[in-house]
Amino acid sequence: MGNLLKEFSKGIIKENPTFILALGLCPTLAVSTSLINGVGMGVAATFVLIGSNVIIALIKGIIPERIRIPCYIVVIATFVTITELLMKAYSPALNRALGIYVPLIVVNCIVLGRAEAYASKENVIRSLFDALGMGAGFTLALLLISGIREFLGSGTLFGHSLGFTFDPASVFSMPSGALLVIGLLLGFFNYLKQRKA
């Protein structure tokens, strides 16, 4: 059990997909304009990660070595399509806000990266926990970035005002604000890492 817990927790801090591995940055930057969008993207990507990791761990024995990448992509794309259809049906507003970044979860390097680096070698239960941890790490990173951007860019959190007012710097809601926030955060985490070493 403790072992499984370690599989779960490594995705959150030690191997955080966004800040340490620097994977899957495109959707992170594009949808992190508000906390709601960030959470939506995080949950959608986690769902795809869990589905693809479990299925790939189950069928890894019957996939021929040479065509494994296309096979993984088909599995991942299936789960992305499921996510897309579910989101369209139950949360059309979120689907509109995330736009083309929902189908683009297919090419999110975190998902394919975990399939290749982890699920293709480990058993189902461990792959499941790995997916949960990576998904949680990705979602937390999105929460952090979109929280910073929503607070500085529009002065709200989850769409609620905070009781005090200030002039929001709307540049943080724009693309350049996203690049600036992620650049400084990556630098900050590098700083922590180098100080520890």
């Binding site: 620097a22 540049v171 724009m174 350049s176 604000g177 690049l179 650049g183 400084l184 630098g187 590098n190």
Partner: peptide, 18 residues
């Protein structure tokens, strides 16, 4: 040193995007 490579690339991209 902490900004070398990746982080600095993003900050430059931010200025370009601006």
């Amino acid at each position: 040193k902490p900004l070398k490579d990746f982080p600095l690339a993003f900050i430059i991209a931010a200025i370009m995007s601006l």
